[in-house]
């Protein structure tokens, strides 16, 4: 890669690579077939994504697809909430006010230095026992008003799981927010200091410099890592399965246990995640290339 002048070609490395990959595959197949005696049955697993209802003749979504939808909801709402947190905290992080800087710094360091798992457990425990009752989320979910009910259905799915969904979402957003804080901070700080000075020199106030000079330039620096963070968010959302949020990974565990088609379920679910994440990657790359082309 460094030496662009060298064309890729087949050589002894290929021999080593190909023979070890082939050897590995043969070993796996042999073990699965003869030693473990595993008989594959994919037909048993696919209906858990969706199946054809014989009576109505319609395709019906099943556990895995429903889990996937919850995962996507978590990711989309999560990126919005955590972007808001990230922008606010990122601005605090570079504020001239030392108190705000200290608070933002503590937030970032605390989140980034505790294991995601431990963070989620602590936070979920705190959230579900204290904050949720305080916010009145449960009441909202139990509300009789049909308008509220449909809203919840459309936005978050089953109202019974609403409070559970909201706690997972908040946990995840606060977690990712710390990373976005750093993205925002780095984006703003990447703007050369001369821009700031030129803005001040033509008499703009600090807020105006931020708004008309720094932020418009910072946005283009922040966008690519933010898009990346969205993909990370999709992946990280699998952790909230451990606090019983019924997203894709949670459903996979359920289906795995109930059907005992463990190999198929986990391979299928890994492929589902891969397809979702990788299409996001391709999409964001395409956007970036288009933005680069339309730029002067």
């Amino acid at each position: 890669m460094i030496r662009k002048n060298k064309k890729p070609r087949l050589n002894w490395i290929d021999f080593a690579v190909i023979s070890s990959v082939v050897g590995f595959l043969i070993f796996v197949v042999l073990r699965v077939d003869s030693v473990l005696n595993y008989s594959w049955n994919w037909n048993h697993v696919f209906p858990f994504v969706m199946y054809l209802d014989e009576d109505t003749g319609q395709w019906v979504s099943n556990l895995l697809l429903e889990g996937l939808i919850i995962t996507l909801r978590l990711a989309v709402y999560g990126i919005i909430i955590s972007a808001v947190i990230g922008v606010v905290m990122g601005l605090c992080r570079i504020s001239s006010n030392l108190f705000l800087r200290m608070v933002a710094r503590s937030y970032v360091e605390l989140v980034r230095n505790t294991p995601p798992l431990v963070f989620i457990f602590i936070f979920y425990f705190f959230l579900s026992t204290q904050l949720m009752p305080l916010l009145g989320i449960d009441e909202l979910a139990r509300s009789d008003s049909p308008a509220v009910k449909t809203m919840i259905w459309i936005l978050c799915g089953d109202p019974i799981l609403f409070s559970n969904f909201v706690s997972g979402l908040i946990c995840l957003s606060i977690f990712e927010g710390a990373y976005i804080t750093e993205i925002v901070r780095a984006g703003i700080q990447s703007i050369p200091r001369g821009q700031w000075e030129a803005g001040r020199a033509i008499g703009l106030s600090r807020i105006d410099v931020m708004r008309y000079v720094i932020l418009p330039q910072a946005v283009s620096k922040i966008a690519p890592p933010l898009a990346n963070q969205f993909i990370t968010l999709i992946k990280d959302s699998s952790i909230v399965s451990l606090i019983s949020i019924q997203e894709l990974t949670f459903m996979a565990v359920e289906v795995g246990v109930s059907t005992s088609r463990i190999f198929e379920v986990w391979i299928l679910v890994a492929v589902m995640y891969f397809v979702i994440c990788y299409s996001c990657v391709l999409f964001f790359n395409w956007l970036e290339r288009r933005a680069a082309r339309s730029k002067r």
């Binding site: 050369p192 001369g194 821009q195 000075e197 030129a198 803005g199 001040r200 020199a201 033509i202 008499g203 000079v213 418009p216 330039q217």
Partner: peptide, 17 residues
């Protein structure tokens, strides 16, 4: 004061956007 004093920098510092 800044409104009364103009400043020109070595690196121009024009706003690229």
């Amino acid at each position: 004061v800044r409104r009364e004093v103009g400043m020109v920098f070595q690196q121009f510092n024009l706003f690229p956007h």
